[in-house]
Nucleic acid binder design. Structure first.
Lengths: 346, 346
DNA sequence: GTTAGCACTCCTCTCTTTCGAGTGCTAACG
DNA sequence: CGTTAGCACTCGAAAGAGAGGAGTGCTAAC
């Protein structure tokens, strides 16, 4: 029953999707012939539309409305029809993002990237920060706060700071704490936090060989401090922007989405997924089986430093999104961020 | 023209406000007589209502609807009528908040307090974190990241960590950095960050007396690192909760509020204001001249450690709020937080 | 001063009607 | 045989028309 998709059908599908993206309203056969001069009559377009509907690329909200793309339709559009325009060097320079991002601390940098994404795209920007456990250990410090409490500060080579309060044997002098610090910094430097954990365990296994009680304690404490390391951090910027779009006039839908923003866990999962693949990835609507973000698309891309992929950033918005403009935004932001994180010698 | 407010008027005003808070719907004269047996007829109530309207405590959305409290009405209700029920010790124990808050790092603690506020009140919880400049200096550390970049980490006595990347003379050895650290820690410990800044300037003024170049540098760097210290931090938790309330069916209103959440600056200003007064404070609707939070009330209270007030927390929601239950929630949370921040020997 | 009675207002809800956009089908056309 | 014009039909959105009802203010009686 299903015809193959010939060139004319493609053109018509493309026209419908683009019109719909622009107007947020079901597209009728007339509109297609008027706005794009394809040299065919509305009747012909109607026939093609019926075919496209049967093939699952379009659907009609009701009998006497125009057609609306389905998720399958968007998918086809993105994979086969869409031509992404990349920024020219000149444009990149003009945007001035580089300027906005330079010279910031890593966490500020990531947040700012999220803001840029959201401002430019008019959707919500997401940045999944590097998991601390995959960053590179650079420094540890024990800072005694009170009799019972000691603050352990880890610094990654990119300048990310993570800290935790633990209880430390009160009898230790500041001098001994320093010795512990020196020992640990010597032993662990240059490893990823992940490797650090492994190394600690390894050293502890050889514990019997360790005649020095202090070192034993050092290992124990650093292990403790790394134990329940902070969960992944997501920066969500520009949640308001998403409200501008007509699809969120539906209160229920909106609430669900904001719930997802608040929980974050769904977003983390989703962004984590795309961490596995390089380059820009697009999740359309229900392809991701999360109810909370039904009717939404996510355009994401990974960013990296010298050692490889370390995080993901992207934009989330309704399925009806101007992909052709948002994709290069995400792409460029990711590349720029990677560039900064590398070139910065971090 | 305006009668004084006699006892009966008060009772009726109270009844109307409470009914309106419960139902979100204009309250008619019948409803008042039915739900509260005041021993008067609807007609009498109508007369009183007309008076109260003239005095500005009530208004009618239209001729044939009941009355709705004005902001002036709420204000009177809160100042003169409301009886706040405080929690008994037993209830406090049962709530188990203490348990949820104990043993956390300061920033986690504040965030968790915000979450509790929002969960219990079903509105949005706000916590204005202590300004870093008013916390007490405990420790400074220079950590070299690369040739050009050095991370400066400040730790406050409460375990708050603030850090900044600065450029440091590359010729300095790690040993010299340590000397700088020791010198600074010795000089500055126990002061508030605010005082620290002053002290740095003071020491720098005596610079000529300082024959040691290293110390001079130390001062210069630490000053640089404290220069543009991070802006105030607000934790906003439970933004979704606020959507449950009927007043936010109005999309425009909602957008405005969320814009305020995103900018934060308005909230900071507002919370900052209430920082000046001890105890629970209530801002009703337009009393605060900020458009963005029109129709909203803020219930806020300060919290403190041994040294005095250090932050503010509160709940924001529509003007129609069950003040009698929310006020003790805010009050108790603030007190509990103060208790933890003090008792914790921080 | 309080209350019952009553006319009046105005919102809300529902039911209809109208309107128009858009369709699918059919028959004619090149 | 694909394409197109014509046309009946469908269905939602918008507008209109009551009906119903809650609530008021006023007046006059208690």
């Amino acid at each position: 029953m299903s015809e193959e998709i010939n060139d004319r059908s493609r053109k018509i599908l493309e026209a419908i999707i683009e019109d719909y993206i622009a107007s947020a309203e079901p597209v009728g056969s007339r509109a297609v012939t008027r706005r794009h001069h394809l040299g065919v009559s509305p009747a012909t377009v109607r026939n093609v539309m019926a075919d496209l509907e049967e093939m699952g690329y379009l659907k009609a909200p009701h009998t006497s409305a125009g057609r609306v793309p389905t998720e399958k339709g968007y998918r086809f559009y993105i994979d086969a029809l869409l031509q992404v325009r990349h920024f020219s060097e000149l444009e990149k320079e003009r945007l001035g993002w580089r300027y906005r991002l330079q010279g910031k601390k890593t966490d500020e940098l990531l947040r700012e990237a999220g803001k840029i994404l959201s401002e430019i795209s008019h959707y919500t920007g997401l940045v999944l920060a590097p998991r601390f456990s995959s960053t590179i250990f650079h420094h540890i410090e024990f800072i005694k706060l009170s009799r019972e409490k000691t603050l352990v500060v880890f610094v990654s080579s990119s300048g990310l700071v993570q800290n935790k309060i633990i209880e430390v044997d009160d009898s230790l002098t500041q001098r001994e704490l320093e010795q512990m610090t020196n020992y640990l910094n010597l032993t662990l430097t240059g490893l990823t936090i992940h490797e650090v954990k492994a190394r600690i365990l390894q050293e502890m296994a050889q514990e019997k060989a360790l005649y020095d009680k202090l070192m034993k304690k050092a290992l124990q404490y650093s292990r403790e401090a790394l134990q329940e390391e902070g969960e992944e951090e997501v920066f969500i910027e520009g949640t308001v922007h998403i409200l501008e779009h007509p699809e969120f006039a539906d209160l229920e839908k909106m609430k669900r989405l904001f719930r997802a923003f608040e929980q974050k866990s769904i977003l983390v999962e989703l962004l984590d997924k795309s961490q596995k693949t390089q380059g820009v990835q697009i999740f359309i609507g229900n392809e991701s089986e999360y109810q909370e973000i039904e009717g939404c698309s996510l355009i994401a891309s990974t960013f990296s430093n010298r050692r490889g992929t370390i995080g993901t950033l992207g934009v989330i918005g309704p399925t009806r999104m101007p992909y052709s403009t948002v994709i290069p935004i995400v792409d460029y932001t990711a590349k720029l961020l990677s560039h900064i994180l590398e070139g910065d010698a971090r």
